Simulated assay, not measured.
Amino acid sequence: MTFIPSLHPLKAAAATLLLALAATAGAQQPAPAGTLEKIAASGKAVLGVREASPPMAYMLGAGEKYVGYHVELCERVLKDIVPAAKLEYMAVTAQNTIPLVQNGTLDIGCGPTTNNLARQQQVAFALTTYVSEVRMATRVDSGITTLDQLAGRTVSASTGTTAVQLLRKRERTNNVSINTMLGKDHLESFLLMESGRADAFVLDDNLLAGIIANSKNPTAYRIAGEPLGSEPIALLFRKDDPAFKAAVDGALRRLMKSGELERIYTKWFVAPIPPKNTSLNLPMSAVLKQLVLEPNDKPLESYAK
C-alpha cells in the first residue's frame, strides 16, 4: 500500500486514485511495435546508407543522392514489402550502424556490413547478398605484393570494420608487428595510403575496387596479396523481429529466383558505374552464385570452417 502523509482525506483519496490510474496506465503500455508496424504508423522507412563505400553504398554528387548495390537492394525490398512508405536516407558509418539499428533510428541497414556471431547478438541479418574477400590495396610503386611484407609497416583500415580485427589476428598468429592507422571512413583510410602515411589499405575487395576506380589516378593502385578472409555481407535490422526478417528475406528470395538480383549485381560490379563511368570488373563469384540458388544467412564463422 502506498503511504501518503499529511493530506486531507479527500486529497488523499484523489492522490491515491491518481497513483492507481498511473500504475494501470503503465501496466497497459503496449509493447514496442515491430518494424512493419512502425513503418506503417510513420509512413516512412529509414535506410542507413554509407557516403563512401562504392559500389555497395555511396553518395553521388552534391545532391546527396545515395546509390549502390545494397542501396538498390534495400529500395527494391522496401518497395515490395511496404510499397506506400516514403524512403528516408540517413548517412551512417561502420561504427554507428549497429547502435542506430538497435535503438530504432534505422529500420534497415544498407551498407556493406559483415554478418558474424558477435553482431548477431545485437542485430539480425537478412540472407547473404555478397561474399567479400578482405584484401589490401597498395600503391603500384610501393613494391608490396604480399601480406608478409606488411610486417613492421603502417597499414590503414576503417574504424569499426572487421579488417581491423583480421589485421590484429594476423599479428598474433604470425608474431609480427603491424602499425594499424585508423580512418573514420573508407575515403579517409584510402587517403592515408594515397598520401604515403600508410603503406597499404585493408578492406573488402569490392570496396577497394570501387574506391580505386573513383580515385584521382586509378592506375597508380592495385589490389594485392592473398585474402585475409572471406565474409558474408547482408542487410541488417532489429533483432527479435521475425515478421520483418521474414518479409525482407521473402523479397530477396523473389529477386534471386527471378534473376533480378544477378542483374542488379552486374549493374554495379561489371557495368560502368558513376561518377566516372568506370567498371570494377568483378563478376559474381561461384560462392555467391551458389548462395543465389540456395540462400542462407550463415555468419562469418561458418565460412572459416
Rank of each mutant, 00 (worst) to 15 (best):
T2Q: 15
F3V: 09
I4Y: 12
P5E: 11
S6E: 13
L7K: 12
P9G: 04
K11L: 10
A12V: 12
A13N: 12
A22N: 14
Q28Y: 07
A31D: 12
P32S: 07
P32F: 03
T35C: 06
L36F: 09
E37I: 12
K38Q: 11
A40F: 03
A41I: 15
K44H: 12
L47C: 02
L47S: 03
G48P: 08
P54Q: 05
A62C: 10
K65A: 11
Y69I: 01
V71K: 01
E72Y: 00
C74T: 01
E75H: 02
L78M: 04
K79N: 06
D80L: 01
I81L: 04
V82E: 10
P83L: 03
P83F: 03
A84R: 14
A85L: 13
L87W: 14
E88G: 11
Y89K: 06
A91D: 06
V92I: 09
A94S: 11
Q95R: 13
L100R: 05
N103W: 12
G104V: 07
G109V: 04
C110E: 01
T114V: 12
N116M: 15
L117N: 10
F125T: 01
T128P: 01
V134Y: 09
V134R: 09
R135A: 12
R135G: 08
A137K: 13
A137N: 09
T138M: 10
V140M: 15
S142M: 09
G143Q: 10
T145H: 07
T146P: 09
D148F: 15
Q149W: 07
T154E: 13
G160M: 00
Q165D: 13
L166Y: 07
L166S: 14
R170A: 14
N174W: 11
N175L: 15
S177G: 14
I178T: 07
N179F: 10
L182I: 03
D185K: 00
E188N: 11
E188R: 06
S189G: 05
S189V: 02
L191T: 14
L192T: 08
L192P: 08
M193E: 10
G196E: 13
R197N: 11
A198V: 08
F201E: 13
F201H: 11
D204R: 05
A209H: 07
I211S: 02
I211V: 13
N214F: 13
P218H: 05
T219D: 12
A220K: 10
Y221S: 02
A224K: 09
A224M: 09
G225F: 08
E226I: 14
P227Y: 11
L228R: 03
G229M: 08
E231R: 05
E231D: 08
E231I: 07
P232L: 07
K239D: 09
K245Y: 06
R254Y: 08
L255M: 02
S258L: 00
L261S: 02
I264T: 04
I264Y: 02
Y265V: 00
Y265F: 07
K267F: 03
W268E: 00
W268G: 02
F269S: 01
A271T: 02
P272E: 04
P272W: 03
I273Y: 06
I273R: 01
P274H: 06
T278M: 13
S279A: 07
L280D: 01
P283I: 00
M284L: 06
A286C: 08
A286L: 14
V287F: 13
V287I: 12
V287N: 14
L291A: 00
L293N: 02
P295F: 04
P299R: 03
Y303G: 07
Y303M: 09
A304R: 15
A304E: 15
A304Y: 14
A304D: 15
